[in-house]
């Protein structure tokens, strides 16, 4: 059984509207490479300088990879991966104070 990757809405433009894709990869870094091969441009959307971008969270079977081995987190067939944009903002007060 391959790895299932849940694609967030803003990136579904790159997967021809698919909300889920299947692939095989040994770890998260490889997963980014595999997705890039299949959906060119995906690497830049997900990572910067080899690291997953800030404000992008990746979960392997409900576990945040930041609390695992980050980009080196091992993957195996049957795993379910979710790519989720952080919900964040603010900064008005800081700007007003300046």
């Amino acid at each position: 059984m391959p790895i299932t990757v849940r694609i967030p809405t803003p990136l579904q433009k790159m997967t021809n509207g698919k909300a889920e894709v299947e692939c095989s990869a040994g770890n998260v870094r490889e997963l980014v490479d595999v997705l890039e091969k299949e959906f060119p441009g995906m690497r830049e959307r997900l990572s910067e300088g080899g690291k997953i971008r800030r404000f992008i969270n990746i979960y392997v079977n409900d576990e945040d990879i930041r609390f695992m081995s980050k980009e080196d987190t091992a993957l195996k067939d049957g795993d379910s991966i979710s790519i989720v944009p952080a919900i964040a903002g603010g900064g008005y007060n800081r700007r007003v104070r300046r």
Partner: peptide
């Protein structure tokens, strides 16, 4: 705020996150 707007999009794009 400016940061609210920036964070509403996928980093580096104008694709709304939600």
């Amino acid at each position: 705020s400016g940061i609210d707007v920036e964070r509403a999009y996928w980093p580096g794009t104008l694709f709304p996150n939600f």
